[in-house]
Simulated scan of single mutants.
Amino acid sequence: MAVVTVALLAHYVLGIVFGLVLAAIMAAFMPDSNPGKASLAGAVFGAALYLLNFHGMTRFFPWFIEARGLEALFTHLVFGVTAALLYWKLQRRT
């Protein structure tokens, strides 16, 4: 139970941190974004995050190699698009 708790905590913290990174990128480079641009930015961010996690971090965590695949890519794309659309929806408009 302790291993699952630590894994979930780490996963949630990383999700929050990467969501904030995406929000900072969108705030800096997409001030006039629309849902389409936000979705595209989120998908690109999700794909980059997948590449970082499953191809870059395998030097430190070799067991990530086994988790590579379309399912992992898809979930990263969903994360990126969802986070970007939430940012777009919740941003203050002047």
Rank of each mutant, 00 (worst) to 15 (best):
N34C: 00
G19K: 09
G42V: 09
V17K: 12
V17Q: 12
T5G: 00
R59Y: 08
A2M: 01
A24I: 01
G42A: 10
L40Q: 08
T75K: 13
M1F: 01
V6D: 12
V13H: 00
H11V: 12
G56F: 03
V13F: 07
I25Q: 03
L52K: 11
A67D: 15
F18P: 00
L52G: 13
L51R: 01
A72G: 06
M57S: 08
P35N: 06
P31T: 04
F60N: 01
T75S: 07
L14A: 14
M57D: 04
A7I: 15
F54D: 05
A43T: 15
A27D: 14
M1K: 02
M26K: 10
A43I: 15
V44D: 06
T75V: 13
T75F: 14
M57V: 04
G69H: 03
L22K: 14
V13C: 06
V44L: 14
L52V: 10
S33Q: 12
I25M: 02
R59F: 04
T5I: 13
P31K: 02
A2K: 09
G15T: 10
Y50K: 05
A43C: 13
A24G: 14
V44G: 01
A28S: 13
S33H: 13
V44N: 05
T58K: 04
W63H: 06
A67S: 02
A28D: 13
F60H: 09
P62L: 03
G42E: 11
I16A: 15
R68F: 03
L51G: 02
N53C: 03
K37R: 15
A10T: 03
L52N: 09
A28Y: 11
T75Y: 11
G15N: 10
T58V: 13
D32N: 12
G42H: 09
L40G: 14
A10W: 01
A72C: 03
G56I: 07
A41G: 11
R59M: 07
L20C: 14
M26G: 08
G15M: 07
A24E: 11
A2Q: 07
I16W: 12
A23R: 08
